[in-house]
């Protein structure tokens, strides 16, 4: 093993990969490779022989890494997520943040800690962004459905926009449902009847 720690980061999103690389660099002097496509994952990891592979827990190709690590000798080097199994807190924090670290060879826990800390912080930030994006998208979708439902009510019953929304809101309250769900039901039902 060379003096410099080598890390492979598996990440197809270019911006995200760059940011992870940036934060890892701050953790120390490290050789970093980024693998974007999972089809070449197996080949690349074998070629690079890194000390650590970082991969998003949501990436299904994680199982391919498991196979690689096993192939490197399951009995002499039991594959562990983390070298220091006694450090449960770190493992749990990493998993919670969505980091999967694969330690390909025996490595001092002290050398791994700053890397994981950096990766955890970065992954957490992305997790938050991902959630916010999903919430925004959902809100947009719901807005569209509510608008369509309002339009249908206005046309069918000759109501104003405010009156149409009022009906949706009251129905939702009466049924203990969200306005978006009532609107969705109306749009679906209208689609079936048309």
């Amino acid at each position: 093993m060379s003096e410099l720690l080598s890390i492979v980061v598996v990440e197809s999103d270019r911006d995200r990969a760059l940011q992870i690389v940036d934060s890892l660099r701050k953790a120390g002097e490290i050789e970093i490779y980024v693998i974007g496509t999972t089809t070449s994952l197996s080949r690349e990891v074998q070629k690079r022989q890194p000390d650590v592979v970082l991969i998003d827990i949501e990436n299904p190709s994680r199982d391919t890494l498991e196979e690689l690590a096993l192939a490197s000798g399951p009995l002499e080097r039991p594959v562990a997520m983390f070298v220091d199994q006694s450090d449960d807190g770190l493992s749990a924090a990493a998993i919670e943040a969505g980091v999967s670290a694969y330690v390909v060879d025996g490595l001092q826990p002290g050398r791994l800690k700053p890397i994981l800390d950096a990766a955890i912080a970065r992954f957490k930030m992305f997790e938050r962004m991902r959630k916010e994006l999903a919430a925004t998208k959902q809100a947009l979708e719901e807005r569209k459905v509510i608008d369509r439902a309002k339009g249908m009510l206005m046309k069918a019953k000759g109501l104003s926009e405010n009156e149409a929304y009022d009906i949706l809101r009251k129905t939702a309250m009466g049924q203990n449902k969200r306005v978006a769900d009532v609107a969705d039901a109306l749009v679906t039902a209208a689609g079936l009847l048309s």
Binding site: N59, R62, D63, D88, I95
Partner: peptide, 15 residues
Amino acid sequence: SASWSALRDLLYVGQ
């Protein structure tokens, strides 16, 4: 979960 190893590890750490 997206992969078997990830699911197994979630189980290990009590997630």
